[in-house]
Each structure stands twice: as C-alpha cells, then as structure tokens.
Design a protein around this nucleic acid. Structure first.
Lengths: 334, 334
DNA sequence: TTGAAAGCGCTAACAC
DNA sequence: GTGTTAGCGCTTTCAA
C-alpha cells in the first residue's frame, strides 16, 4: 500500500507537506504541490479511507436496512438510495433483516459503532407486529440519525418518508367506482403490515362513502405460502358478482388478471383490476395491469437527502415526515 | 462516544489493561477483567469499528458491484451474498453499475483504497461489449481479491462462479424436443450478453443435433425498450407452426405465456414454454412457467465463500471457476 | 498482573 | 513555505 509517508520520503519533504499539497492547501508552493501530485499519480496514490474516517470521525457511508430485497419495491428504493448516495459521495452498506426483528437489531448494533454515519430503514414485519422500537431509540440517543421509509414506527422520533397509502387506495377504489362498478373486491397479501391495513381502510372508506354501495365484504386476505392463483380463483367463483378488484400488494394484481383470463372473464370489461405496482410489473400480464405507482426510486432519493441534511445540520430541526405523492396509471386493466 | 480511554480513566487502570481485558487476554486477572467488562456493559461500550479497521488493516466488509438491482436474478444473488456474509461476520457495500463501465470503474476505484477487503462483481453490459478489463487487473495487482459471477471476463485472472448457460439451454430445448415438438423458437432480450449468446448457442446446437429438425431460424431478439407483448405476438402470428418456446431471460417467458393465452393458444398443449426464472416469477402466469432454475442464492453464497477463502489463505492457490448446476423445473407450461 | 509507548495513515494546529 | 507534533481509538510489544 502506498502511503503519504512513502511519497514524503521519495520527495524529501515532510508528510504534512504532502498532505497539504494533496489537499490543495494555499500554504504550499505550487511547485511543490505539482511535484507531490505528480508522484502521487505515478504511484496511483489514494488516501486510505479508513485512516481518513478515523481522523474525521465520519465514514461517508450509510447503513440501509431492508426487510426483503426480493420485493421489487424495496429493490427499487435501494436503487434510488444508491444512485443519490453515489452522487453525494456516500457509500451504502446494505443489510437485509429478512423480516426478522433480531436480524434488524443485530445489524443496527453492528453498524452503529463507527461503521456508518446514519441509517435508512424500513422496519421488519416482526418489528411492526411486536411493536418493538427501543433499539432505534438507543441508536438515536447516541446521536446517529435514522430515516425510516414506507414501514415506519410512530414511536420513533426521526425523519420519515412515506406514501399516503390510505389516499392511494381511495384513489384506486374510486377510479373503479367511477366506471360504475359496484362489486369491488380487495385482495391483499400484506394484511399484517400497517400499510396493508391503511390500504384496506382506504378501500373500505371509499366503498362506504359511495352512493348505492356500502358493501365492504369482498375482502380476500392471502397469507404467505398460500397459492395466489388457487385462492383468487376460488374467491372469484364464490363471488361471481365481482366486477372490480383493488390489489394491495405488488404481485396479486398480476395474478388476479391472469386468473380472470383463465376463467374466461374479459379484463377490464367484466372485471377491472388496479394494483400497487410499477411499469415492469404492469407488463407481465395481458392486458397490462393498471396500477398505483409508489415512486419507489423517489422515496429512496428523498430518504437519503433527508438523512444527509440531518447529518450536515447538526442543529436540531423538527423531524419531518415527507409524503411522496402516488400516481394512478391507467394501463389496460382498468 | 464512549472509548477505551474513558473506561480506563473511570477504573484507574491503563488503556492497554482495558483493551486486553475486553479481549479476554490471559494476562489480565479475572477480577480486573470482570470490572472492566461490567463498566463496558454499563456504558454500552463497543469498539470503534474504524479504529479497529485501521489497526488491523482489514475492514470485514466486501464490495459488491451489480449491474442492475432491479433484475431479480441479481437481487437474489445479493440476498445470498448478504446472508452468508452476515453469517461470517462481514458487511457488504453495494454499488450498482447500472450497466455502465464508467460507474463500475468509479466504484472499484473508490472502494479499493481501504474501504473493502475484496470484491464480488458481475460486470456491466458496457464492460462486456467494450471488452474492457484493465480496471480489474489493476485492483488485483494491488492485492485486493475479486470474485466474478455470472457475467465474467476471461481476461481477468480471478475466482469465478457461473452456471453452465450452454448446457442449461440445451436441457430446456431438449425437454421440448422430447415432447415431440419440432418447431421450437428461441426468444431473447439479452442478445448482447455473453450468457445470452451461450444460451442461444445451446438452443441451436440442440436443434441441429435433433433428428428431423435442423431448423434454427425461429429466433426472436428483442431490444430493451421494445414492447415484449407486441413483438412476441407478431412473431407468433408470423410463425404459426411454433409449438415450443425457450426464453433466454427471466421475463419474456412469462410474457410469452400470457401472449399465447391472449391469442387463444392452449399452453402447453399448443405451445410449451420454458424460461430462465425462479419460483416467484413462475407464479406470475397462468399456467405457471416451467423454468431453468439458476440457483441465484447459491451463486451468491459460493461467491462470497470463494472470496473469504482467498482472503484467509494468502497462499496463491490456483484460481477456480465454480459451475453451479442448474435445474429444470417442470411447472405447468412444459 | 499491569502499564508505557509505538504505530496503523491521516490531518491540522502550531512552530520555524 | 515547510516541518514538528499531537491525536483520532485501538492493539500489542516490551518493560516493570
């Protein structure tokens, strides 16, 4: 490894001269600066990150804790975070909690002590179910900032980035109602998450408020491990009056369309479907799924910018909760 | 931040005593060790990672450079890497090259100088197209080990983890031939990647070798940005003799099934489809896609283990290329 | 059994 | 304009 010391020896100057020259200090003559930089280039010298980190007590890296990287939404948020982080000169350490509270705690612990400058996290299912939040507050008290996104904990005082799940679901349901559909079902595989409940509430509220409907019984809750197609098919068979579906997660909408088609329904004529998804998922069905776009990349970008803000302004601003607007995109299924 | 120094002062002992006690050195009396550990727990002391890193000149973190995290295959490999890394006490810094050579170079550069102990990378499309590889060899010469997976560069002497794309494609094609299908098409969206070419070669070889077939003209190459459904529909219309399809990537198989269904074909009766995918993707069509499973998680696990091996055995073993066997999984589309 | 001191690579007061 | 020195938090030799 080539160090400042080596350069100093070769040039018969002191390490501080080299350091200053490398950092374009005005104290150093331009001649010396040139010599130093030339030699540095020649040796392909780059400052040792660890040493710089220790000296500056910051790492220029952010810990990102995700419940599940195989979920396209989280992958996309990560993409957004990485992109913006790189632009701002930060690296990201990714930890996957796999929906487990213990893994989440462990990752926080491990990274807290000097490995990262702050955290971006979407809490695990476990954490949300168990209502556990002490581990976050401990970190916060040590002065390490956290930004939570999507799955957030109200009991933790920190910056947050969310979408208005309730409103988005209202929007989807209402779009179906506007098409004069009266038998609208709600399908969810995320009943155990807060955002799942919010989306269900949005659906129910909209249905209750609609003229001549008031029917909120058409709710299908599917647990992990169950076969989507089988459950949906049975559900549709048992409720032949259904002519619209709101899907709360990012895969059941697609499966719903495919199931409808396989059962001989025309989509959207007989049954219209709206899901929470994105352009890519939309393309996976024929007809293409109409969807609520959550702008996952935007969520990632906002999360890291909120964090970097907090990192640079040590002054204690009020914590903010940023709501990223959703968009209803009419593809072909509604 | 609570440091060893603070503990030492509180206990009226030296920092070295504290350090040794914390590390269970036999030099220190059990009484002192206890006192130190108790106070450490009381203060929730944990060693500063950066300082330990600087001292030990290792970071216990691995740089992972991926072309595209939105591709499910890479997300899954990352999942496998993270899981195994955590088990072995390593963290991972994730960089996304976004298929760009420049970003790939930049990430390597930035992390090389003391930020990570080694790299796991799948090279970008750019890199492969341009045949650029100096940036890897530079890193290697500095003694930082690299493991390449899936998209590998023959010109770079390092450990590699791949699947036998040629063989996998042969296997898929042959399965269709065994069903007495003679008009088998090949659909690809990854024509510009080596693995894409290998899969095409496997298909062609198998077709040429089959009795009474020798027809390898039914190849559909789709570029990024084009609409899959539209292209596939036109292709199938123009070639009504097609009764089998091998899809080279992990989305066109699904779209192909949906397109077939929408055109009134029975799947697999009229047209059978096999893609490169996994259980989750398979579920997105009705009928479910039969697929070549690449065991992405396994690839991740093997990659990091190869890297950690290389990290611990500084002895220069021969570089290995590990081939992870694929599995043909018959779901419902073939 | 404990402590002093050096050093990992770097930066930045402070001297010269 | 350049050099000396201390110190970031830790480990580890060596001395006591």
């Amino acid at each position: 490894m080539v160090t400042i010391k080596l350069l100093a020896e070769q040039l018969h100057v002191s390490v501080s001269t080299v350091s200053k020259a490398l950092n374009d200090s005005s104290e150093i003559s331009s001649a010396t600066t040139r010599r130093v930089k030339d030699l540095a280039k020649h040796y392909n010298y780059h400052p040792n990150r660890t040493a710089v980190n220790l000296k500056s007590s910051q790492t220029k890296t952010i810990g990102v804790i995700l419940p599940n990287i195989l979920n396209r939404f989280f992958a996309k948020v990560l993409f957004g975070i990485e992109k913006e982080a790189t632009k701002k000169g930060y690296n990201i350490i990714t930890c996957i909690s796999n929906e487990s509270l213990d893994k989440e705690k462990e990752s926080l612990q491990l990274l807290t002590h000097g490995a990262v400058d702050g955290f971006i996290v979407a809490v695990s299912e476990d954490t949300q179910t168990l209502g556990s939040f002490d581990h976050f507050n401990t970190i916060l008290q040590q002065g390490v900032p956290i930004v939570m996104f999507d799955r957030v904990l109200n009991q933790v005082p920190c910056d947050k980035v969310i979408i208005d799940d309730f409103e988005a679901s209202c929007k989807a349901t209402d779009a179906l109602i506007q098409q004069n559909r009266k038998h609208i079902a709600f399908i969810t595989t995320i009943d155990d998450l807060n955002i799942g409940k919010l989306r269900e509430d949005g659906y129910k509220k909209t249905m209750m408020d609609a003229v001549e409907i008031h029917d909120t019984s058409l709710v299908l809750k599917i647990q992990g491990g169950e076969d989507l197609h089988t459950r949906i098919k049975a559900f549709l068979s048992n409720n032949p009056q259904i002519n619209g579906v709101v899907s709360a997660d990012n895969i059941s909408g697609t499966t719903c369309i495919n199931t409808c088609i396989s059962m001989g329904y025309k989509v959207p004529k007989d049954i219209a479907v709206i899901g929470f998804a994105d352009e890519t998922i939309s393309q996976l069905s024929v007809p293409k799924l109409s969807f609520i776009n959550q702008h996952a990349e935007e969520i990632g970008k906002n999360s890291i910018n909120l964090l970097l803000d907090r990192l640079s302004n040590s002054n204690n601003k009020e914590f903010v909760t940023k709501v990223i607007p959703t968009t209803l995109l009419h593809a072909q299924s509604a």
